[in-house]
């Protein structure tokens, strides 16, 4: 196996590890750091695939992803956290060992489902599709178990990372127009959700979504 393929596999494994770490991380600030790390790993693995297949367009995609997910979105999120006063906030109602076991089961499921799909693809890094699918499922799990709005948004953003990773592993990335569109959507989404956080907090005095249920009167 050539060296860049080994590096792609290693980066894919790290990508999965970060997805698990995000599932189990309690502190919001560390969660944002992990998100930036995941974005960085994603950009590096796109570069590795681009190098292995000599496709220059993938470098552009990697640069776009790196800029957006390592610098711009984390900075916006840090600013939001600071202005909302959540810097040292942590979610204590997380049962981490149970979550990790559920995550492992999801992982086995994803690897099993991905195997026939990956065989249809003709890419050099098709084996990593299982990892992409697993990290998508882990992000969904994270959105389900988290209780505050900000951490759910982080789950959503990590889901989008997983989708880009899946696209890279099955078809060497999406067409440039689609990728630019997604990037724009994500950044606009983060801005709009940032505004929403303030509205939610004004209305309910908290970002905890469980309070929505009790707000019927």
């Amino acid at each position: 196996m050539p060296l860049f393929a080994q590096i792609t596999n290693l980066l894919a494994a790290l990508f999965l590890l970060v997805a698990f770490a995000m599932l189990a991380q309690r502190r919001i600030v560390h969660l944002i750091n992990l998100y930036a790390l995941q974005g960085g790993i994603l950009a590096l693995s796109i570069v590795a695939v681009g190098y292995g297949t000599h496709q220059e367009s993938l470098y552009l995609s990697a640069a776009l992803n790196g800029l957006l997910k390592v610098i711009v979105i984390p900075l916006i999120l840090y600013r939001l956290v600071r202005r909302l006063g959540l810097a040292w906030n942590r979610e204590n109602l997380l049962r981490v060992p149970t979550l990790l076991l559920v995550g492992l089961v999801l992982n086995i499921f994803a690897f099993d489902v991905a195997l026939p799909i990956a065989h249809l693809a003709g890419t050099i890094n098709r084996d990593t599709f299982g990892i992409a699918l697993a990290s998508v499922l882990l992000s969904l799990l994270m959105m389900i178990v988290r209780t505050t709005a900000l951490t759910q948004v982080l789950g959503f953003l990590s889901l989008e990372n997983g989708l880009i990773f899946a696209a890279t592993s099955v078809t060497y990335g999406m067409p440039m127009m689609v990728e630019l569109g997604i990037a724009l959507d994500v950044i606009v989404g983060v801005f709009i959700l940032g505004v929403f956080f303030f509205h939610i907090r004004e209305e309910f005095d908290s970002l905890d979504l469980h309070r929505f249920d009790r707000h019927e009167e």
């Binding site: 894919a12 999965l16 189990a24 981490v96 060992p97 990790l100 076991l101 492992l104 990892i131």
Partner: peptide, 22 residues
């Protein structure tokens, strides 16, 4: 929690070995 994480990482290693076949 700490040792559960160790277990999870070790199982992930095995799963990744099966997936990537290396």
């Amino acid at each position: 929690e700490f040792l559960g994480t160790a277990f999870m990482v070790a199982v992930l290693g095995i799963l990744v070995h099966f997936l990537l076949g290396t």
